[in-house]
Design a protein around this nucleic acid. Structure first.
Lengths: 160, 160
DNA sequence: AAAATATGTCAATAAGGCTGACATATTTTT
DNA sequence: AAAAATATGTCAGCCTTATTGACATATTTT
């Protein structure tokens, strides 16, 4: 683990603590700030429509996986049915998402974005995409593959 | 913008929409899942002590920048004084953070982690650091520099 | 006919943000 | 010295997003 930079030795009580050297505070903080600003882009747009980040997530996944059922969505978001209910209802009432009774199992509600929903999903993703493109360009050639692999490995269950 | 992968053309009404090709959904999603799981590590530890992510952030920054004032902290976290108040008070009452009246300006309260606070901050950072080390190792040599640069550029005000 | 499933909904609770208003101590300005 | 500005603390109330538990409805499976 090279290039860890200057972690300062500090005084804890009367013993010197240089434990920090084991901890990668540098990337922890970079990740925090990167993600904070990454999500701030869509937040500004969402506010106008009275929506929040919860709506963004629902809209995003429904848009990306058209025909998703409610159960699918709950599983992806890892929230409870009751938590999803209000957010989903607002998106449906606002005309961004529509439900279609499952063709095989009529208990299911397949979810689709409407044209407006797709437009909103796109508007939300656009500034994020631009931010990513800019960062990749500044980082240099090959950055995309490296970043992709890194992020994929950061996720749980990424095949160890 | 190469290697964008297979964005499907979809049917919106009766016109074909291949706009998605402009949007980097792949990295947007990788970031979402990476960060979701990255924060889940400390969340589990925090729950035991009745703390949440808000406490983690406060503890982290005070630990990293000892002697920080309340105003500094508000500026870093970008939350309001009232929002900070409850969380900070709990951390002080629990003995993880202590306040020292500013030596020059006695209105200020300089914040420091106690030994317990440092231990907790470390315990929270450790699984995150391990996750990062693992991902960097799996990504390959040179990954650290590339990822660092990428993340730094994702942040606002990173020099264009 | 009974049981299981997919979804919807009501009620109560909690964390963590927010705003506005105001109090106190201290420093700076006039 | 008096007035204004600053740093912090705190009260009260509101919003969003999450939680759990309970129950209703329609539909499919057993």
């Amino acid at each position: 683990m090279a290039g860890q930079s200057k972690e300062n030795t500090r005084y804890v009580g009367d013993t010197v603590a240089h434990d920090d050297d084991t901890i990668d505070f540098e990337i922890i903080e970079l990740l925090f700030f990167a993600y904070r600003d990454f999500t701030s882009d869509p937040d500004a747009i969402l506010e106008k429509g009275g929506f929040g980040r919860a709506h963004h997530r629902v809209l995003h996944f429904v848009d990306r996986e058209p025909g998703m059922t409610v159960a699918n969505l709950l599983d992806t978001l890892k929230i409870t049915k009751q938590s999803l209910a209000r957010v989903l209802k607002q998106l449906i009432d606002s005309g961004y998402i529509r439900q279609v009774t499952g063709p095989e199992d009529r208990r299911q509600r397949m979810l689709y974005t409407t044209e407006e929903g797709q437009a909103l999903a796109r508007a939300l993703a656009e500034p994020q995409s631009r931010r990513i493109a800019h960062a990749l360009a500044k980082t240099g050639p090959g950055a995309r593959e490296t970043v992709k692999r890194f992020l994929a490995c950061m996720k749980n269950g990424a095949g160890d």
